[in-house]
Simulated scan of single mutants.
Amino acid sequence: MRGVTDVATICRLLNERARELAPDLLPNGVRDGIHWKTSSMEDVPTGRYSFVVDLQGPKVGRWHDFGGARPGEDDGDMLDLVRIRRCGGDMIAAIEWAKSYLGISDRDRGSFERARQEVERRTSQREAEHQAERQRKRDHAKGLWLGGVELPGTPAEAYLHGRSIDLRALGRAPGALRFRAEVPNKESGARLPCMVAAIMGLDGTHMGTHRTWITQRVDGSWGKALLSDPKLTLGPSLGGFIPLWRGDGAGKLATIAPDTDIYVSEGIEDGLSVAMGLPDKRIIAAVSLSKIGALELPEQAGSIVIIGQNDPYGSPAVDTLEAEIGKLQARGFRVRIIYPPRDPQRPNGAPAFKDFNQWLCEDPDGFFGRSAGRAVA
């Protein structure tokens, strides 16, 4: 080849052909939605799938090995996969293999131009398909939420009450939360009662819907459904948030008064627990810990106050939170963290409570009689 541009084009064209190339390079894998999955780079049948290749979407052709791969073999693109699987790690040989596979000849410069045009055509087509699928998911997610009913008097309200979140005491129910009696659940293969939450963009767009499947216990109370993952998101969510509580303010998050602090929880229950103790605060849920740094937030916000959890020092959750806080700070936001209290009577001042909801459930008198947790600058 004659330069970086040529190799980059080969990479792009191989990535666009991931749907046909991945099964050829990893024949012991299986198709799972938009992914091709296998055990590892060695592609040994084990029944476990920690090696994942994206077959479509914005990351088409990218792969990642979640199973502790050797350095340099934990992620890459389709050219890297060809290099490792077909060419013994030799990149020059991989490029020559790719040129032959793609029908590119050094003697026919037109073959490279045709390949370049094919890249552009496939990329344009894929992007159009991706946008259409993204909009379809948004519409489906919004329809799921719109089909729900307001919380008062529903099992979803009873579920929150069972977590010591009393919407009647707060005086109103969050408009972003609704209840549906039957929502399909893939794991159970059934339609189960579900609390559905709107995931909103700062511009007011309904991006996706968060689902919390619930079940009635033998004593008549309601709790999370007995599933390996009773909480899942439908539709896009990166940058979005669940608006939980407006506090003393009015209007949408985008139009809050200058210097208004925004309290950010990872999940719904922790955010509403803080609302029980600090009902004057503006509170949103970030849907996922790993998405806090990407939240769409108004520039006029005061501090971004993270509603923290007492995870063990050095744990992945702590490392993730630190990284996400760094992203917010890099965007110019002031960030603080509040935590549930530690217990001075326990060894090394160990946490008395894992999170704010546990604190509210187990020590309501202490929760309401004190400021919400210990602050960390």
Rank of each mutant, 00 (worst) to 15 (best):
F179Q: 11
A190S: 09
R121T: 10
E157R: 05
R138L: 08
C194E: 10
E182G: 03
L202Q: 10
L170P: 02
L144K: 06
Q135Y: 12
V149W: 01
R180N: 14
G171H: 07
R116P: 02
D106I: 01
V149T: 10
T123W: 04
P184Y: 13
Y159M: 01
K137A: 15
R114S: 09
R109T: 02
V196Y: 04
V149M: 03
A173E: 06
R114H: 13
D139I: 15
M195L: 15
S164H: 14
E182L: 15
P174R: 11
P174N: 11
E187V: 14
R163M: 08
K142P: 00
D166G: 12
P174C: 11
R107I: 04
L170S: 02
G147C: 01
R163N: 03
V149Y: 04
D108C: 03
M200S: 15
R121G: 00
P184L: 07
V119P: 02
E120P: 02
R114L: 12
A156Q: 08
T123P: 00
R163A: 04
R109D: 00
D106Y: 00
G201E: 12
G189Y: 09
C194V: 13
E113L: 14
L170D: 00
T123I: 11
Y159T: 03
A115S: 07
P193F: 12
L160A: 02
K142A: 14
A132C: 02
V119C: 05
L167T: 13
G148D: 03
A156N: 05
V196I: 10
E120R: 11
G171Y: 08
L202P: 05
A181F: 14
G143F: 02
R134W: 12
L202F: 07
T154A: 01
A156K: 06
G110P: 05
R109N: 00
A141E: 11
R126G: 02
L177D: 11
L177E: 12
A198D: 11
R178M: 07
A132F: 10
G143P: 06
K137E: 15
R168A: 15
Q125K: 13
I199A: 10
P184K: 09
L146N: 06
E133L: 11
R172W: 05
V149I: 10
A156G: 12
G175I: 12
L151F: 01
K142I: 08
E120D: 05
Y159F: 04
H161C: 00
A173T: 10
G143K: 09
L177P: 10
M200P: 07
E120L: 07
